[in-house]
Design a protein around this nucleic acid. Structure first.
Lengths: 167, 167
DNA sequence: TTAAACTTTCAAAAATAAATGAAAGTTTAA
DNA sequence: TTAAACTTTCATTTATTTTTGAAAGTTTAA
């Protein structure tokens, strides 16, 4: 396979994977493009390479920066802005975990807490509801905490974790 | 909060969480509904409770069964089919992990392998591409294997894992 | 058999999410 | 200042995903 073909295939695949996990395709594609670029890329180049509009590029770059996984860079003597992606994969995974926890898991936990603490009347139906949502609350809380702990190792956490689990 | 309100809130929240993680809303809602029901529910009741069409209910129930997290049940002397959800959360997490790995991670890994093994010419650009995608391949492979190992504990794996990581 | 009771399928419609592009906003160099 | 070079915003359009509902399919009891 040729370089250009491989690069395109990678960008498409990363985009599709993003969609499947609730991240919009273009956002994932821009991230993919930046990850495999050895130097900062201008918005113009991103638009050209992915065949997307200026607005689309701008909004998704903003979103990626909000996630903390893409950075703006300024080149001396250049008016334009350039962009780079977080390339350290441990760091990338940590940031994605943290953001998803903050934006999605934590709010869901709050609701789970609310609904699991209603006063259950004596019907089996209501008892089961409280029981099941309580268990779910505990489970999600534990999983969320664990993810936090895991990524706290920070440097090469995945490798360290594998060791810890194996032995 | 009243039971009916709490139940509805739970179903809506679970549905929204599903969407954010690439699972269609109705599928997640049906699953939520079944999880908190203490007895099997008919398609009719699901349609009624979620205000959805027969076709929608049928297709999403099929999908949930394909995921292995919802089961068909037959009641003696009843023509209709009833449905229940996997209620054991360890088991639920294991099944979801396995399916997502099989459907999404494994195919992505295959592509990553392909593109990371191209013959890189001596340009810095191509070298960086091969280097970065190789690292990504290793990372994703390791993460995928770890998830496998984690869920292999099977019974109360999350709890056991927490213990193992803490000490 | 057959017909009633039920489920599945899938083309078309509806709903939702994402992308466009032009206007408004911002920055910088002269 | 100001005007050129650039970025952001957001109402509108386009694309994608989901849902509907009616027809086709299946099962069961008589």
């Amino acid at each position: 396979m040729e370089f250009k073909e491989a690069k395109n295939k990678f960008v498409q695949t990363w985009g599709a994977l993003g969609s499947q996990w609730g991240i919009n395709k273009t956002m994932a594609q821009i991230h993919a493009l930046l990850m495999v670029s050895n130097e900062p890329v201008s918005m113009e180049d991103i638009m050209e390479e992915l065949q997307i509009s200026r607005g689309n590029a701008s909004m998704n770059l903003r979103a990626l920066m909000d996630w903390g996984i893409v950075y703006k860079e300024y080149k001396a003597g250049e008016r334009r802005e350039f962009f780079t992606a977080e390339k350290d994969l441990d760091e990338l995974a940590v940031k994605i975990s943290r953001e998803r926890s903050k934006r999605e898991i934590k709010p869901a936990l709050k609701i789970l807490k609310e609904v699991s603490t209603i006063e259950a009347k004596d019907s089996a139906e209501e008892k089961h509801f409280v029981d099941q949502t309580s268990k779910l609350y505990d489970f999600v809380l534990k999983a969320d905490n664990m993810l936090d702990k895991m990524t706290e190792f920070n440097d090469n956490w995945l490798g360290k974790l594998v060791l810890k689990i194996m032995k």
